[in-house]
């Protein structure tokens, strides 16, 4: 095996390979997948000199540790965390050199949920339908990282960025999600719609890459019966029978049969990816552009 590879020393709770996903296959039942906090993944790639489409690692809450077999440049972005190389603290949010055989440890998120680890050359697992992303809904792409796994790295194409630190948005203390109502707001009572856009929810611990689940006031339907399955978009706010809104994230199913009350602005979804359970959530109605 080539020495352009990463050995997984500590996989962490849930670390996956992510890139920009595989949009364009929804009609086949294939979720788009891809990094949940896409700007953070893009920044990490920029810092190490990778193209925007290079695959990175997405950690969940408690980080991961990897050992490159050759000297690489890495950058950790997204959720702030302690980063060490062979136990010595190094910078978060900046390019860092990791010598061959040294252990890069990405610590637990101090704030936020998901850290992104870009490695010069990018993670070069075999793409599926044009993407290296792990899709936890349908099982496409590489499996989540396990201790001892080895990930191939691609060829380095450019120099790393000459920066000491890159500004990044802080994970949200309160998540404000701008929404446009519809397409199925008429399935809910006016009171329910008012509740949805005026009351405060909290991020549920049952949230995952498929959806940001919430706890809070339940939303009552104005009509009973079933909605035939219909296509759903990223950011759709679906309301299952328990009446608590779920915001669809990257691994969301391509069709669904619960009414979609509103759709979250795409620009607000990266913050949703970093909201820890318990974070207050407010849905703010905005006009369609």
């Amino acid at each position: 095996m080539t020495d352009r590879a990463l050995a997984v020393v500590r996989a962490g709770a849930l670390t996956t390979v992510q890139d920009q996903g595989r949009p364009g296959h929804a009609h086949l039942g294939v979720p788009r997948s891809g990094a949940l906090d896409a700007p953070a993944a893009a920044l990490a790639n920029r810092l190490v000199g990778n193209p925007a489409e290079a695959a990175v690692l997405e950690t969940t809450l408690n980080g991961c540790a990897v050992r490159p077999r050759s000297t690489v440049t890495v950058a950790v972005a997204g959720a702030p965390c302690r980063v060490t190389v062979d136990g010595r603290p190094v910078a978060w949010g900046a390019p860092v050199r990791v010598p061959a055989g040294a252990v890069l440890d990405v610590g637990a998120a101090v704030r936020g949920v998901r850290s992104y680890v870009a490695v010069s050359g990018g993670v070069a697992v075999e793409p599926v339908l044009g993407s290296r992303s792990t899709d936890l809904l349908s099982g496409l792409g590489p499996p989540q990282l396990t201790d001892g796994a080895v990930l191939p790295l691609g060829r380095v194409v450019g120099p790393h960025a000459r920066v000491h630190v890159a500004p990044q948005p802080a994970p949200p203390a309160e998540l404000v999600l701008r929404v446009t109502l519809g397409p199925r707001d008429d399935w809910f009572t006016r009171e329910a719609v008012r509740t949805f856009i005026s009351r405060t929810y909290r991020v549920s611990a049952a949230s995952n890459r498929i959806g940001l689940r919430t706890e809070g006031p339940t939303l009552e339907r104005a009509r009973s019966g079933e909605l035939p399955s219909e296509g759903v978009v990223l950011g759709a706010v679906q309301v299952p029978p328990d009446g608590r809104p779920v915001v669809f994230l990257a691994d969301h199913p391509t069709t669904g049969g619960y009414p979609v009350l509103a759709v979250v602005r795409a620009a607000d979804l990266p913050a949703a990816a970093q909201a820890v359970p318990g974070t207050p959530v407010r849905f703010v109605a905005v006009r369609r552009r």
Binding site: A13, L14, T60, L61, N62, V113, L137, S204, A205, A206, S207, N208, I210, G211, R213, E226, L227, P228, S229, Q238, P240, P241, D242, R244, V246, F248, D251, H252, P253, T255, G256, G257, Y258, P277
Partner: peptide, 27 residues
């Protein structure tokens, strides 16, 4: 993700329980 009655892994509509009731953590 939340399911719907047409899904081939579910039974009748009485089984449309909310998904996520399994208490999975975000990880």
């Amino acid at each position: 993700g939340p399911m719907d009655a047409d899904r081939p892994d579910t039974a009748g509509t009485d089984r449309r329980g909310p998904v996520g009731a399994d208490g999975r953590s975000p990880v």
